[in-house]
């Protein structure tokens, strides 16, 4: 089999995942796109391992490791997304703009306030986040 087939397929999958990472708004969809990119890499690893007939089968071993790490990554990533959603009421990545330079000194930022909720999950700042949110339900409003 030509090596070009799996290689090109991996490239295309990678770029599709890339597009997803850059274009999707929901953080979970972004995570899915990351999975696509990881799988493209896995495909490459397997293809080249088979082609090279490596006695140690480093490619396949590495693929297994990558799959493991991807599973761990998705677990952590989802936990973070959940936390963000619980604190902010949203999981849209383009609204998490605390790092923006607004041109003013530390003051009210666009959204979420300076309360850096993802760092300190326990902070109680319910008022700041509910106003402009389509998703009013909050984890800690009780």
């Amino acid at each position: 089999m030509h090596l070009a087939y799996p290689a090109v397929l991996a490239v295309l999958l990678f770029c599709v995942g890339l597009y997803g990472v850059l274009a999707r708004r929901n953080a979970i969809l972004v995570l899915m796109s990351v999975e696509l990119m990881l799988n493209a890499v896995n495909l490459n690893l397997v293809a080249f391992d088979v082609w090279l007939r490596d006695t140690l089968h480093a490619g396949q071993a590495l693929t297994l490791f990558t799959i493991t790490i991807a599973a761990a990554e998705i677990g952590i990533g989802l936990a973070i997304v959940l936390l963000v959603h619980r604190n902010r009421g949203t999981s849209d990545v383009d609204q998490l703009t605390d790092l923006a330079d607004t041109g003013t000194e530390p003051g009210p930022v666009h959204f979420g306030g300076p309360g850096s909720a993802s760092i300190a999950p326990g902070t109680d700042n319910p008022d700041e986040t509910t106003a402009d949110q389509a998703l009013p339900a909050r984890g800690q409003t009780a």
Partner: peptide, 20 residues
């Protein structure tokens, strides 16, 4: 700095796009 500051939107996707 004012000009450069406009690029700092805080949106991670923009940053990534430019980076990639």
């Amino acid at each position: 700095g004012l000009l450069v500051r406009r690029a700092q939107t805080g949106n991670v996707q923009t940053y990534l796009s430019v980076l990639l």
